[in-house]
């Protein structure tokens, strides 16, 4: 598989103005992302997963190192982001949210709305086009956010714990939906989560991070057929392996936060 994204020796330091502290969020992150893969990043909270996604999306700059997106990209844009807190514009309806990207790129109205209709079909929001975000459930909001990111036709989609604030039932449904949409769009997904079961269900590869400063501890390939079930024998084995590997890191990160 060709490489779509080349991450080279990234280091990120946050400077906290008020206390003059320096927080090393990421250190020596190198990673090649394959075109069309579903890559999952897991690690204890505060290890820099969100920071890495923002760097990939060009929303933050690394202190050193860099990212390289392959020249022959699919799509119009390099990356698109789906945030945990949805980040929908409250004053825009579902349809208006979805067309935001094409609108600021001056895509003609007819074209961008036709495309939005196709995406509404894809994320199964037919009939809700003219609702405002506050009139939707959490799961529906996240599907709008996904459609909005897809509307820019990005080569790489970044997800920052998109299902973390949803209830267990909705999460399950959306996990299946995500895999379907990933298969239909054939895009590269980089997906941050702290839920190991999600990593097992979704990932082609799972990247385990250490506690802060975030480094890559291990990259675990997941060679399980889809659709996967969390109770399957191989899935359970993998889940156990991942929890074993991540336990130390979680403990270290809790200790760093003064717990335990």
């Amino acid at each position: 598989m060709p490489i779509v994204l080349h991450i080279k020796d990234i280091r990120k330091v946050w400077h906290i103005e008020r206390t003059k502290e320096q927080v090393v969020a990421l250190d020596g992150i190198s990673l090649d992302v394959e075109r069309g893969e579903f890559l999952v990043l897991v690690g204890p909270s505060g290890c820099g997963k969100s920071t890495l996604l923002q760097i990939i999306a060009g929303l933050e700059n690394p202190a050193s190192g860099g990212i390289e997106l392959s020249k022959s990209l699919d799509g119009h844009k390099e990356t698109g982001m789906v945030f945990q807190e949805y980040a929908l514009f409250p004053w825009r309806t579902v349809l208006e949210n979805i067309v935001f990207g094409p609108e600021v790129r001056s895509v003609p109205k007819v074209e961008r709305e036709a495309n939005a209709q196709r995406l509404i079909e894809l994320v199964r929001l037919r009939g809700f086009e003219h609702r405002y975000p506050h009139e939707l459930s959490g799961g529906m909001r996240q599907r709008v956010a996904l459609a909005r990111a897809l509307a820019n036709d990005p080569a790489v989609l970044c997800f920052d714990e998109p299902l973390a604030s949803l209830d267990a039932q909705t999460r399950k449904v959306l996990q299946v939906e995500l895999v379907r949409i990933w298969q239909e769009t054939k895009r590269t997904f980089i997906y941050v989560t702290h839920a190991l079961d999600e990593a097992v269900l979704l990932g082609d590869r799972v990247v385990l991070f250490t506690a802060r400063p975030g480094r890559i501890k291990e990259i675990v390939p997941v060679r399980l057929p889809r659709p996967r079930t969390i109770t399957g024998k191989q899935e359970v084995e993998l889940l156990e392996y991942l929890s074993e590997r991540i336990r130390d890191e979680v403990e270290r990160s809790l200790k760093a936060e003064g717990l335990t």
Binding site: Q54, L59, M81, G101
Partner: peptide, 18 residues
């Protein structure tokens, strides 16, 4: 204004004026 909305706008390609 929620900073994540500003981030989302930037991510979707909006410039400062937009």
């Amino acid at each position: 204004i929620d900073p994540v909305l500003l981030k989302a706008a930037r991510d979707l390609g909006a410039n400062r004026r937009q």
